[in-house]
């Protein structure tokens, strides 16, 4: 029987790759550094996913279950790959558990890290308890607690969502667009308006990038049906008057400075390259592109190729990515692995 395939990371991409390979009778070893599978949607406690509207714990939970129960998938939680040597078709991976395993290929599904808002101190995160991140609001919704001000548990009357926190910002070395925060924020604004109809939600933006079909489903719908207000302004700072948060900036459409009181300020945090990427790059011998994500080769011969033969990559490890597309890339990388194995077999015979 062919050697197993190593899949690093048990988020949407890794789970999709493992399921595809196992379905085709290919054994895999799925390692994840965390104590749970599911990746960011499960670890961060996301609520309803974009664009399906399904709860993360059900949608991603289902993907976890079918992989965890599959006899051909060897799941190793709380495990990292510490060494990786050999060549395509005959690699040896040393795991942090001490085990050494022989694998024919590896798929890196190592994902991203959420931007740490503390790196943007002028926007008040870490200084004022009622400045939170989109992840925290996701948790408020998914836990059933509802959207509340952390300082005293009150229902907010007015919420500001600041877009591009940790994205498109040369000052902090993050020049990329994180792609999905606009859509997620529009969705979150609608969820807040649905739970708290008396609460007004304002979104401060530089550009709205609810691309493709998300335009009507999120941007238009949030404005037309939920009366969410969009203000073109890059916020300068978030302060407090002791009672309310004060959001300062310039309203570019009326060319006026604004200092508006808010109860809750939400940072739409972007996607950073996985903080472990320098290690991953060194261990697996894969290059990182200029922003620090894993560099993907061109897609025309096979999908998910890296500069290293036999090591594939999928999902948000390559750059900011949606859950749906991460799943597709996981499956595509699995297909690329099977293709390569088939081609190798034909060459041998």
């Amino acid at each position: 029987m062919a050697k197993p395939i190593l899949i690093v990371g048990g988020g949407p991409a890794g789970l999709a790759a493992a399921h595809s390979l196992a379905t085709f009778g290919q054994a895999c070893i799925l390692v994840d550094k965390e104590d749970r599978l599911g990746g960011a949607p499960i670890l961060e406690g996301y609520a309803k996913l974009v664009p399906s509207g399904e709860w993360a714990k059900d949608a991603i939970g289902g993907m976890v279950d079918r992989v965890a129960e599959h006899e051909l998938v060897d799941v190793r939680k709380e495990t990292k790959v510490t060494e990786f040597s050999g060549e395509a078709g005959d690699f040896t991976a040393v795991l942090s558990s001490g085990d050494s395993v022989g694998v024919s290929a590896a798929i890196l599904c190592t994902g991203f890290s959420h931007f740490d808002s503390a790196n943007k101190p002028e926007w008040g995160f870490g200084t004022f308890p009622d400045v939170v991140t989109t992840s925290q609001v996701e948790q408020m919704i998914s836990s059933g607690q509802g959207v509340r001000c952390p300082s005293d548990g009150r229902k907010p009357q007015r919420v500001a969502i600041l877009l591009c926190v940790g994205s498109r910002d040369r000052q902090i070395g993050r020049e990329w667009c994180s792609k999905i925060c606009c859509t997620v924020s529009a969705n979150m604004a609608m969820e807040i308006r649905e739970e708290l109809p008396d609460c007004h939600v304002y979104i401060y933006y530089m550009d709205i990038r609810t691309y493709g079909l998300y335009e009507t489903k999120y941007y238009w719908k949030s404005q037309e049906e939920f009366k969410v207000k969009y203000i073109k302004a890059r916020i300068a700072e978030v302060t407090s008057d002791g009672e309310k948060l004060i959001v300062k900036g310039e309203d570019t459409l009326v060319k006026r400075p604004i200092t508006i009181p808010f109860d809750l300020v939400v940072h739409a945090i972007g996607m950073d390259p996985n903080v472990d990427n320098p290690d991953i790059s060194a261990i697996f011998g894969v290059d990182l592109e200029t922003h620090g994500y894993i560099d993907k080769a061109s897609s025309y011969s096979a999908t998910g190729l890296t500069n290293k033969n036999g090591v594939f990559v999928a999902g948000a490890a390559i750059g900011p990515e949606t859950i749906d597309d991460s799943i597709a890339q996981g499956k595509a990388a699995a297909m690329a692995v099977l293709e390569q194995r088939q081609l190798a077999a034909r060459l041998v015979s």
Binding site: H200, Y202, Q223, V254, R256, P257, I260
Partner: peptide, 26 residues
């Protein structure tokens, strides 16, 4: 100072209540 120091959410609702103003929020 010409700083905008607050929003008044009632105003849009008032205009929207009059014939012709229904779609201002779009």
């Amino acid at each position: 100072s010409r700083v905008v120091t607050d929003y008044n959410e009632a105003m849009e609702d008032e205009i929207a209540a009059l014939p012709g103003g229904e779609y201002i929020h779009r």
